[in-house]
Design a binder for these strands. Structure first.
Lengths: 147, 147
DNA sequence: GCGATTTACATGTATCTGCATATATACTAG
DNA sequence: CTAGTATATATGCAGATACATGTAAATCGC
């Protein structure tokens, strides 16, 4: 059973994660831009080999539920930010690529995203504290991956 | 603009918070219990004076959107876990109290919740690291409250 | 090389959330 | 007082999410 400190820290972690994301989402929305999930997909695609990924690859990288990603990609395709073509190697599979409009959208989102991170989060900790936090969270996240 | 470490830490924070919550939600669901939000409301009520709070008080303590809480309370009332009566002091207001069934539900949820925290989170950090993480998150959360 | 299982992805349906707005009461200025 | 504004709560509607399940192709066991 967890001790008091662990419980308190867990609650803080949940709250800090939620408010951090909400702050960024609010800025994106205020700027008339799509939500964070769209950015994540665009970014994964842009840095992938050939700017292309299979849905199941995006799913595992972003820890999204399969049905959730399926519909997210449908919306992004409808918005013209990604393209979809059947995989030649795997008859079940699709290949998702980022369009030029998708890359442009990601470039428009980034400064808003970055400024929101700095304002809602970066400004609150010194560089060395940020490194300490990073190291601790890294261990929390890595532990979760195993399970 | 944020530096690389800040961005990386922000992403870790968002991911750690989300997976931490999801791990607990999954355990609650597997045990046939209501989601975390219900627990939070029950807990706030139980530790409040007279085990009663106005909706707007719950809202500010849990950082919930007003319309979201309104509907959450409706569901919990339908499930018999809370009671609602009009406020005598404020004609606009309601007073929410926890029922005996609500208190019993919270007691049933707690061990599942606690075990999930320990497994998904507590076991990954030593006691002293947990204290360090707590102190850092505290500063992140406090900063967010100001804004 | 064929049935059984697994993997990749989609979708119907129910529930939840967000947004805008409604309703009613309280407060405040003059 | 009264008009205007602010606060407390609810709700119609649209969009997003969760769950269960469907479809199709790949892989595995024998």
């Amino acid at each position: 059973m967890p001790d008091e400190t662990t419980i308190h820290t867990w609650v803080l972690l949940a709250r800090a994660g939620r408010t951090a994301v909400e702050a960024v989402e609010a800025e994106l929305k205020a700027a008339g831009l799509p939500p964070l999930g769209w950015y994540d997909v665009l970014w994964e695609l842009e840095r992938a080999d050939d700017r292309a990924l299979r849905p199941f690859e995006i799913e595992s990288r972003l820890l999204l539920a399969q049905y959730n990603l399926s519909r997210l990609l449908k919306r992004m395709e409808a918005a013209g930010l990604v393209d979809r073509r059947p995989s030649t190697e795997d008859g079940r599979g699709h290949i998702i690529t980022i369009t030029e409009a998708g890359a442009a959208m990601r470039r428009r989102m980034w400064p808003v995203y970055a400024r929101a991170i700095e304002a809602a989060f970066g400004a609150r900790l010194s560089g060395s504290d940020m490194l300490r936090l990073s190291a601790l969270l890294e261990r929390v996240v890595r532990g979760a991956e195993e399970a």
